[in-house]
Measured scan of single mutants.
Amino acid sequence: RNRTTFSTFQLEELEKVFQKTHYPDVYAREQLALRTDLTEARVQVWFQNRRAKWRK
């Protein structure tokens, strides 16, 4: 699988949710996936990576 390149819009949407919660539930991830045209799995992995970055 190739690396996912996120658009500016997608990143803004993802970051917006991350500001509210670092652990969105499955429903929130599904909604975000639909809004950003990503799969729920991509959204989940983005949050994992974003939390790792945030901890540093």
Rank of each mutant, 00 (worst) to 15 (best):
W46I: 00
Q44W: 09
K56D: 12
L32S: 08
R35C: 04
T36A: 08
T39S: 12
E15T: 04
K53N: 15
Q31E: 13
A41T: 11
R42A: 15
Q10A: 11
Y23L: 01
A52T: 08
K16C: 09
Q10I: 05
Q48H: 11
L34S: 11
A41L: 08
R50G: 01
F18G: 00
L38W: 02
V17F: 04
Q31A: 14
E15R: 02
K20M: 08
E12A: 09
P24H: 01
F47H: 02
T4F: 14
R29Q: 06
R55K: 09
Q48Y: 03
Q10N: 01
Q44G: 12
K20C: 07
P24R: 01
V43N: 00
E40Q: 10
A33F: 07
T21G: 06
F18D: 04
L14P: 03
R35N: 05
R29P: 01
N2Y: 10
F6W: 10
E13C: 04
K53F: 09
P24M: 01
Q31N: 05
E13P: 00
A41V: 09
T4L: 14
F6D: 07
T39W: 00
T36G: 03
T4Q: 14
R42H: 12
R55N: 11
R3S: 15
H22Q: 14
T5I: 10
A33V: 07
T5Q: 05
N49L: 12
Q31R: 08
K16P: 00
F9V: 11
Q48P: 02
L11E: 07
E40P: 11
L14C: 06
A33H: 03
K20P: 00
R3W: 09
Q31I: 07
R29F: 06
Q31K: 11
V45G: 12
R55I: 12
T5P: 13
T4P: 15
F9R: 09
E30F: 07
W46M: 00
R42Y: 09
E15G: 03
Q19D: 07
V45N: 12
A52Q: 07
H22G: 03
H22W: 04
R50S: 11
R55V: 09
N49S: 09
R35P: 00
R51Q: 04
E15Y: 00
E13G: 01
V17E: 07
T39Q: 05
T21R: 02
E15N: 08
T21L: 03
Y23F: 09
T4D: 12
A33N: 01
T39N: 07
T4S: 14
T8K: 14
Y23H: 05
A28M: 08
Q48T: 07
Y27T: 07
Q19V: 08
K56P: 06
Q48S: 07
V17A: 15
K56W: 02
Q10G: 00
E15S: 02
L34P: 00
T21C: 11
N49C: 15
F9S: 12
W54R: 07
K56T: 13
A28F: 09
R1T: 13
Q44T: 13
F9D: 12
R42I: 14
W54I: 09
R35K: 15
Q19Y: 11
V43C: 00
V17T: 12
T8S: 11
V17R: 02
W46Q: 03
N49V: 07
A41P: 06
F18W: 10
H22R: 08
T36N: 03
E15K: 04
E30I: 04
Q44P: 02
E12C: 10
W46V: 00
T4Y: 13
Y27M: 14
R42D: 10
K16T: 09
V17I: 11
Y27H: 10
F6K: 06
K53W: 06
E40N: 07
F47Q: 00
A28D: 15
P24G: 02
Q10E: 03
F9C: 08
L34I: 11
Q31D: 06
D25H: 15
